[in-house]
Design a protein around this nucleic acid. Structure first.
Lengths: 247, 247
DNA sequence: CGCGCAGTTGACGTATGTCAAGACAGGTGG
DNA sequence: CCACCTGTCTTGACATACGTCAACTGCGCG
């Protein structure tokens, strides 16, 4: 991944190729799209609710989150995004941002002008379909999070989230020996699963005590995938990762 | 609305015209798309999780919901759909359904073959954009529901849901004198906001006692919009209803 | 070396869940 | 037209998962 960065759009090509093989023409066109790369520290806003952005972004390194605040000032994280993800494709068609995006860890992010996106998509309608599909998978993940937060207890919610992250990170080569980096604080986890930080702390402890996960600093390792799947009531269907259904 | 039914696609034309004016050609093409109309009783499945549908649908009359079950058999309703909505546009690009759709009230639903959808979209790329936009608004609603369920208390959740329904029903002409029909049981409401049916009952009672809503059978009337908005911490931005922001 | 943030722990509070009984209403059949 | 039945809503008593608060620990970083 790191060496790929010299060719900034290669991650996008890989992403779209995971949907269907691209023609050389399509690949070439994508490589031509200008990308502005920025590096960010942790906890910086990338786009803010109410903005009318003229570009969208792709995460190249690090983790970001999509969030909103309630009037009481409580934060709900609606999505975590990992390298390869494009969290604000929707801005192509919805003028005003209805959520904010912030970095969770240090990040590198690529920005692409809407106009440039539209041009490639016009020339290659299959790319439109691929980007549309990306946003549909995002929506599917939102739905699963609704089920998670609305109907499952804290223990299951966290296990479920870890299952999801493992599979998504695996898909971009960021899992080795069932171990991945989770650069979130417990407070961020709490905001993602809709429970309080101290309850996250306690729940993680029982997950560790049950041998479902092991942690060391911000590295998480899953000694027994099947156990984690059961703990999280996890069914990977909603990720729509073609061909994959386990690590 | 009822008389429109003789021209089944007119609701779709209206829906897309709320996004941008359609050319006569586009309208004409849409009118040519074959639609199969079915009528359903309440509580019937329209599409099931795991299906690989070859068509998508538009709600013409009545209410439907999108839902999933947890392993414990608890149901989370992720979305309520009202006339004009197209709940499974995603099946155009995601082969396997990751949720089920069921009628909540008696319904009439129009079914359109994927192939027919794809053909119009190919001929008129702006229609692709319009349908894509529809799915993006759905996603935005999922996000707001995440905030609602994850961070707000029962009282606020229900008030918020009522705000949303009022605006969406208003947009399709189903609100008169701040009154609309809500053909859901309290159990369905409960599954939509992630609380228990008996707590829904109690919460509705205090909403009524506070004068925020009035109910009579399944009719809900909102005597003071501003009060309901405050009770629900409601900001209509996420609905992306162009030009509108209140009833 | 010390500051500060993240995580932990315990005591305690509460919003909401559960269970079970009763009231009510709409529809059906005699 | 009445009696019944079924599904929905309501009510009360009680249980509990989770939240809150506050103090303490430990580690990383300047």
């Amino acid at each position: 991944m790191v060496d790929d960065l010299h060719q900034p759009n290669s991650l996008m090509v890989r992403k779209l190729e995971s949907i269907f093989p691209l023609t050389d023409e399509e690949k070439h066109a994508l490589q031509q799209v200008p990308v502005v790369i920025k590096t960010l520290k942790a906890d910086q806003e990338i786009v803010s609710i109410g903005d009318r952005p003229q570009h969208c972004c792709q995460i190249l390194e690090g983790f970001t989150c999509v969030y909103k605040l309630s009037y009481a000032g409580r934060r709900q994280i609606m999505a975590l995004h990992v390298p390869g993800d494009m969290p604000d494709l929707q801005s192509l068609h919805l003028e005003i941002m209805d959520f904010s995006i912030a970095s969770i860890s240090p990040c590198t992010v690529g920005f692409i002008q809407h106009d440039d996106m539209r041009h490639v998509c016009e020339r290659f309608p299959r790319l439109t379909a691929a980007f549309w599909r990306e946003t549909l998978v995002d929506a599917s993940i939102y739905r699963e999070w609704l089920l998670n937060i609305g109907q499952r207890d804290a223990y299951t919610r966290i296990a479920h989230l870890l299952c999801e992250l493992l599979l998504r990170l695996k898909a971009v080569g960021l899992v080795e020996d069932m171990t991945f980096t989770l650069p979130t604080t417990q407070e961020e986890l709490a905001d993602a699963v809709g429970i309080s930080p101290v309850h996250v702390s306690r729940t993680l402890q029982t997950l560790r005590a049950d041998g479902v996960i092991q942690t060391e600093k911000s590295r998480v390792t899953v000694p027994d995938w099947q156990r984690l799947v059961e703990a999280g009531e996890f069914d990977p269907l909603y990720l729509h990762q073609q061909g994959r259904n386990g690590p």
